[in-house]
C-alpha cells in the first residue's frame, strides 16, 4: 500500500486505504514522542521549507516539530501576502526555493489552490498546511486520528461540525476525511455560513443546533472568526453565542461517551464555554499532540522517492 500522490493537497478524493495508512503510521510514530530522545534520523538530509503566507502559530510549530523529530533540515519562510503582492510573485519565490534544492514544501496561503499551483512549478513534494477556505488536510487527518484513537473506529459514528462552514478549510477536510472512513457527518451553522449545495459533499446541514446534536458522538466546534464579519454574515457574536454556542446544557442531547473537539485557537465564551472546552469530554489538547504524530506520518510517507535515484 502506498499513497497515490507524492503531494498532500486535499483529503477530497483520498481513499479509505490511503487515509488509514497515514493514521496507522501516525499511531506507530506517536510512540517516538514518548521516548527519552524524541528524535529519529529518518529524514536526515531532507530539506523542508515551511512556506507560510498567513499567520499561524500552532500549525507551523506542529509541522516544525514533526520535521525536526524526523531529523529533516528545516527552513522557515514567512511572508505577509501584502508585501509579497507588491514585490516578488509567488512563482518567483517558489523558483528560488526550488533552486535551493529543497525536497518538501509545507505551504499555507490565504488563496485556495496555491498548493496545487506549487506542484505545477516545482519538483518538491507539496504539503498543504491550509489554503484559503479550501482544505487543511493534516488538521482533518489529526481530527480523524484523535477520534479513531478514542473509539477504535470511525464507521457509524455521528460527527457534527458546528460554526462558519462557508469559510472553514477545517470543515471541508474533516468532511472528506470522516466520510471516507464511513462516519455520518453533519454540519451546523447560521444559514449565512452554510455554503451552497454543501449537502453534495455527503453531509446533512442544519441551522438548529439541538437538532444537529441529537444522538451525536463527536462535536467539532469551529472558531468563529471575528475578522470575517464584514458582509454582515452575523449580526453579533452575542447572538451567535446564544444560538450556536456549545454550552453544558446542550450536551445532554449527545450520546454517552461523547467527544468535544476544537481546532483552536478557542474564543472562550463565544463558540464554546470554558467548562465544556476544559471538560472531561474535551480532546482539544490530544488533538494538538496527535497533530505532531500525524504530520510526522505525512512527512515520512511523502519523503520517499519518485524523482530520486534508486
Amino acid at each position: 500500500m502506498k499513497l497515490r500522490s507524492r503531494h498532500l493537497l486535499a483529503l477530497e478524493g483520498m481513499s479509505k486505504d490511503e487515509i488509514t495508512l497515514i493514521l496507522d503510521t501516525a499511531e506507530t510514530l506517536k510512540e517516538i514522542l514518548a521516548r527519552p530522545i524524541r528524535i529519529v534520523p529518518t529524514l536526515r538530509g531532507v530539506g523542508v521549507v515551511n512556506l507560510f503566507y498567513e499567520a499561524s502559530t500552532r500549525t507551523r510549530i506542529s509541522f516544525e516539530l514533526a520535521e525536526k523529530r524526523l531529523s529533516a533540515e528545516v527552513v522557515n519562510f514567512s511572508a505577509s501576502t501584502s508585501s509579497v503582492k507588491k514585490g516578488e510573485t509567488l512563482k518567483d519565490t517558489v523558483r528560488n526555493i526550488e533552486a535551493m534544492k529543497i525536497d518538501m514544501v509545507v505551504v499555507r496561503h490565504q488563496a485556495s489552490g496555491v498548493p496545487y499551483f506549487l506542484t505545477q512549478c516545482m519538483k518538491a513534494s507539496i504539503i498543504n498546511a491550509g489554503d484559503g477556505a479550501h482544505e487543511h488536510p493534516t488538521q482533518g487527518l489529526l481530527d480523524v486520528f484523535t477520534v479513531r484513537e478514542k473509539y477504535k473506529r470511525i464507521k457509524g459514528l455521528k460527527v457534527v461540525i458546528v460554526g462558519d462552514i462557508k469559510h472553514s478549510r477545517v470543515a471541508r477536510s474533516d468532511i472528506w476525511g470522516f466520510t471516507a472512513l464511513g462516519a455520518d457527518v453533519s454540519v451546523c451553522g447560521p444559514t449565512t455560513m452554510l455554503p451552497l449545495e454543501i449537502e453534495k459533499m455527503g453531509v446533512k446541514a442544519y441551522s438548529d443546533l439541538d437538532q444537529a446534536l441529537e444522538g451525536a458522538d463527536v462535536v467539532n466546534v469551529l472558531r468563529i472568526q471575528l475578522e470575517r464579519q464584514r458582509g454582515s454574515l452575523l449580526p453579533s457574536l452575542r447572538e451567535y453565542s446564544n444560538k450556536f454556542g456549545i454550552t453544558r446544557d446542550r450536551l445532554n442531547r449527545l450520546n454517552q461517551n461523547f467527544t468535544i473537539m476544537h481546532p483552536g485557537p478557542i474564543n472562550r465564551g463565544v463558540e464554546i464555554t470554558p467548562e465544556v472546552a476544559d471538560g472531561p469530554h474535551s480532546v482539544i489538547l490530544d488533538q494538538v499532540t496527535n497533530g505532531v504524530a500525524v504530520r510526522m506520518a505525512v512527512l515520512y510517507l511523502l519523503s520517499g522517492g519518485e524523482g530520486k535515484v534508486e
Binding site: 510512540e31 529524514l43 538530509g45 520517499g304 522517492g305 519518485e306 535515484v309
Partner: peptide, 13 residues
C-alpha cells in the same frame, strides 16, 4: 529510506 520508491511500513517499536 530516501532512495526507496515506496516507503516501508513502519511497525511498532
Amino acid at each position: 529510506i530516501q532512495t526507496k520508491l515506496e516507503q516501508p511500513v513502519v511497525q511498532k517499536t
